[in-house]
Design a protein around this nucleic acid. Structure first.
Length: 420
RNA sequence: GUAGAAUUGGUGAAGUGGUUAACACGCCGGAUUGUGGCUCCGGUAUGCAAGGGUUCGAUCCCCUUAUUCUACCCCA
């Protein structure tokens, strides 16, 4: 038997209904914030991710799906959504628009990782990218949009953890200060942190082992190294979040591994699922340097992404979603060949009038058809028999009240639409 | 890349080195004269992840592989 590749999932049945529900809600909320849908390729030139995420990082070297196509091009399956959208913005010269560009996406990403709880090799994320504005109102809007979607999905106890890395000057000052502070304490840190000190010192801040130790508690904080401008900017964003009634907490340890982030960075967690990594439902930040880095103009960008797979795992435990049901509005039952012809015709008629209709395709007896109709939660049953058909009549049964009546075959559509 | 645990019908699962792999749900059929959902009766795994080995004999023991779960690493 052929099985699915490691780290992938088949989504069927009730799970599929839940996915549809989430997708629909995401789309509705995105549009109400005036975000437009953007769809970029699932595979891109490898170089795009190397340039955006960082050539030397483990991420690009080990955790992407890379291959050469038949034209000997280096291709990478997208590991995240931002790079593709920014590439599109630049390539299509969308920056020429006098207006801010606000995009949302919802699609699969690929990361060559070892699968475990809440982590797959093919994962699905929705997110937004806003390009062309450095206004703090956008930082606040993006954060509140992410927050509100999760809230509308009834995920409880949400909190935004937020931090600011400041501009380039602030960032670089901070990096120096952190290294200077950590250097004499290196021997007291865990092995991994000593390695991180060389590769990515900011990451030491959210090391699981050393996080709660004295050394890191007293470590310099990014926000203390913000220059005046960056600091004011951060405070403005927080002020806007207050106005938008977002529950946030300043968390100086959020650094979000990637080099291209600056100013606002944030993660959204549910405090009800606080086994560290699992609780992070989404995150994002500002990336004002990235567009230029990818040969675009000197512009501004900010975005976030949320993993749907993880959200689904949480929603599955919420009662509200347990009775999402497939619903058929009308099930047409027949036994004889003559009745079958009428059934096909009636079914088509109902469907073209927007009524969700099913009929017997398995040559079942009437009993079997009743059972199937119940499994489908059919609201109305149309039970055909030759005798009535000769008179132009059908039996129609309300499957909730169990009341049955005979109506004219030409009045079926009208009857059902009128009663639904 | 590392480590631990798992893998038995459509589903939840019991079980044993030796003739027919328990039980439950579901599904199918019948009692019900073409109108069910209750009840009763019957049918539902030639096979226990795949391959190899040990053995007179393996679903059960051993090895390899795959996948799943959990943790580490890493995290966009």
């Amino acid at each position: 038997m052929i099985t699915k590749p490691k780290g992938t999932v088949d989504i069927t049945g009730n799970d599929a209904l839940l996915w549809e529900y989430i997708n629909h809600l995401v789309e509705t909320v995105m549009k109400s914030y005036n975000y437009e849908y953007i769809r970029t390729p699932i595979f891109e030139s490898s170089e795009l991710f190397h340039r955006s995420v960082g050539e030397t990082s483990d991420i690009v070297r080990k955790e992407t799906y890379d291959f050469k196509d038949k034209g000997d091009r280096n291709i990478t399956l997208r590991p995240e959504g931002t790079a593709g959208v920014v590439r599109s913005y630049i390539e299509n010269k969308l920056y020429a628009s006098p207006d801010i560009k606000k995009y949302f996406y919802n699609g699969t990403m690929y990361r060559y990782e070892r699968p475990q709880k809440g982590r797959l090799r093919e994962l699905t994320q929705f997110g937004v990218e806003v390009l062309g504005s450095n206004s703090p109102t956008i930082d606040a809007e993006v954060i509140s949009l992410a927050y509100r979607i999760l809230e509308l999905l009834h995920i409880s106890n949400l909190q935004v953890n937020i931090n600011s890395l400041g501009d380039e000057e602030s960032r670089s000052n901070y990096k120096k200060a952190l290294k200077k502070y950590l250097e004499p304490h290196l021997s007291e840190l865990c092995e991994d942190c000593r390695e991180r000190f060389k590769t990515n010192p900011l990451r030491i801040l959210d090391c699981k082992i050393d996080k709660d130790g004295e050394i890191l508690k007293n470590a310099p904080k990014t926000i203390d190294y913000l220059n005046k401008e960056s600091k004011e900017r951060f405070e403005t964003v927080l002020k806007y979040l207050d106005i938008l009634d977002i529950d946030y907490e300043i968390d100086p340890n959020i650094v979000r591994g990637l080099d291209y982030y600056d100013h606002t960075v944030f993660e959204i967690v549910s405090l009800d699922y606080n086994d560290t990594q699992q609780s992070v439902l989404g995150g994002g930040g500002r990336y004002n340097k990235l567009i230029k880095e990818l040969d675009g103009p000197d512009s501004y960008g900010i975005g976030f992404a949320c993993g749907i797979d993880r959200i689904v795992e949480i929603l599955k435990n919420i009662d509200l979603y347990k009775d999402l049901k497939k619903e058929v509005e009308c099930f047409i039952m027949y036994v004889s060949e003559e009745e079958k012809l009428h059934a096909l015709d009636i079914a088509q008629n109902l469907r073209l009038n927007g009524v969700i209709t099913e009929t017997n395709h398995l040559d079942k007896g009437l009993k079997g058809q009743f059972k199937e109709a119940d499994r489908l939660n059919a609201k109305y049953l149309i039970i055909l028999n030759d005798e009535d058909l000769k008179k132009g009549l059908v039996n129609i049964k309300d499957n909730v009240t169990k009341e049955e009546e005979k109506i004219d075959i030409d009045e079926i559509v009208e009857y059902i639409i009128g009663s639904l």
